[in-house]
Amino acid sequence: MTFHFEGRKIQAAQGETVLDALLRSGEPVGHGCKAGVCQACLVRVQSGPVPPKARQGLALPVAEQGGALSCCLKADEALDLQPFREEDLPWVAAKVTRVRHLSPDVIEVKIEADLAVRPGQFLRVKGEGMERAYSVAETTGSLHAFHIRLIPGGQMSALWAQVQPGAALTLQGPFGRSVYDPAHPDRPLLLIGSGTGLAPLWGVLNDALAQGHRGAISLYHGAASSAGLYYRDELEAMVGVHYVPCADAVTDPRDRPGSPLAQALQDHPDLTGYAVYLCGSPGLVNAAQRQCFLAGADMQDIFSDPYVPQGVKA
């Protein structure tokens, strides 16, 4: 029998796993335990039967995008597969519908694009000879919103600084796993972010509330100065959210001084059973991943998006 992988016909024996058939055909698929645990052999299923075991333990958005473990797929004529390469997602046209300032250096850009995105995921935006990632703070049907910090001297920032309603954009996505999971409505949520790291957190937060989340929700937002803490009034007014603004240079008496991570861990020293969302500067996010894990949050419940600058090689 045969099945399809990237348009090619792959020969398989009756009862053979997809992974074994791919490896025998010389396809360069990743693999490890070959027993449905290590997730190294992920492929994308366009069509065909997927047993539950092939999706066990996968992040929600990965499973939604057709991800499946090839070591747990039985070869089947009906299977049409692709490598799970996120960069293969199509680019789509989008239009800017609204631009407004949220703070002196952060703008909200609303766009219209035919893309199904979950709040908290991110999209890639094409610039002039470059691409940059932006998190989705809001999404309703085909309308999505970004929060974008205008960085002096930044290549994409220079384009954003001039963007007007009606402008055409080219986007790819969605990417990322930092989304609200409605399967756990009672667990406490801890959201920690800096700067426009608030964008995905705002998305997750509103999604959680809209889906009737019952556990406590705490948001620690940090910025260099009090003036950078955009959405302050909206967050303070939100029912069911414990909002803690933090700034390195405090000029507003409502703000706590210092890092949102330190403040969050001071208030929540034991994170057993929490889901934790971390977004913003890579220094903060990487430190927070480790510290939140050591404080008791489980690996699979820590969702993070470090805003690694793409214009500079790491």
Binding site: G32, C33, A35, C38, Q39, G57, Q289, M299, S304
Partner: peptide
């Protein structure tokens, strides 16, 4: 951290005498 959960599970499954290759 995200990829670690799966790799650590693979390690534990192996030393617990579970299915692996």
């Amino acid at each position: 951290m995200e990829r670690q959960a799966a790799k650590q599970k693979a390690f534990l499954t192996m030393v617990f005498g579970g299915p692996h290759n």
